[in-house]
Amino acid sequence: MNILHMLFEILIFPGFAFVLFTALFFHWLDRKLIARFQGRIGPPWYQPVADLIKLFSKEDILPVGTNEVFATLLPLVSFAFVMTASFYLPFAVPTTQSFEGDIIVVIFLLSMPSLLYFLAGWITSGVYSILGGNRSLLQYFSYEVLFLLAISGTVITSGSWSLAGIRSAQLTSGSYFLPQLLGFFLTVSGLIGKLKRDPYDIPKAKSEMVAGPLTEFSGKKLGLWQLTNQLQTVVGLSFLVHTYFGGYWQMGTVGGFFTFYLLLILLQCLLSAISAIYARFRIDQLIRLNWYALIPLALIHNLFLVLK
């Protein structure tokens, strides 16, 4: 019975299947919201599911000169990385034991797909893929530093390197969202870079890079890459809820679960609005913005938190 229960937790709720469906739902929400911002109607609710099934049933072709083993492995591995990260960020339902330093593990697991994304561009022979891959690596060096610095604000205040520690510290002192609003927005900025969303979608910029590293991928592999990205969105957002909104909900309760979900939806609205408002940055503009403005800001913010 115990084993069955564990299996259920891992595979269905709150594990694999539930996270997957949440990811698909949020992808629909994102597209619908952007469509509404632009005065359109937007796709129906089943759209991500249909897209995914269709992509999985399509023919899988790779251009000559592409390493087939790598091309198959990369999307699988990056999917596995994000999926693993989702187990450390439970959806308000306790699954794995939190331990000291698991926030580092999560950051590592979330940053791996970006590297694999670069590799995906590198192994395929197309020009757009290689250039897109290069750009994603360039971008990686700016937003990743910002993300790490900004998120460490919560670690400094709570004095704990574990997600559970950060959460429980917020339950007593109140959420970090309002007191650390600057840090929150810096984290969001880093997260947008991680997810390669507008306005940081430089590696896959449609008007010059076609689809970036994914240009030559089709069928199942493309479906898996897209699923990874959708999953990464949800995991990244729930990471934000864990670190900045820990005071608003309680792990393991029904009310906590719904608050958690509501917060996720609100954050998704924020991301969609940012996507709809801004034009795409140029890579040099992005790096300048990050290294000259946002990263020093995050450092000063952290310094302020330490001194306080």
Binding site: A35, R40, I41, P43, K206, A211, E216
Partner: peptide
């Protein structure tokens, strides 16, 4: 693609790469 017609409501997307298209 634009608000007056919006084919995304039928799930139609305008893709950039031939490998993604149907």
């Amino acid at each position: 693609l634009t608000p007056s017609y919006d084919i995304e409501r039928f799930g139609i997307l305008n893709e950039a790469s031939p490998r993604h298209a149907d």
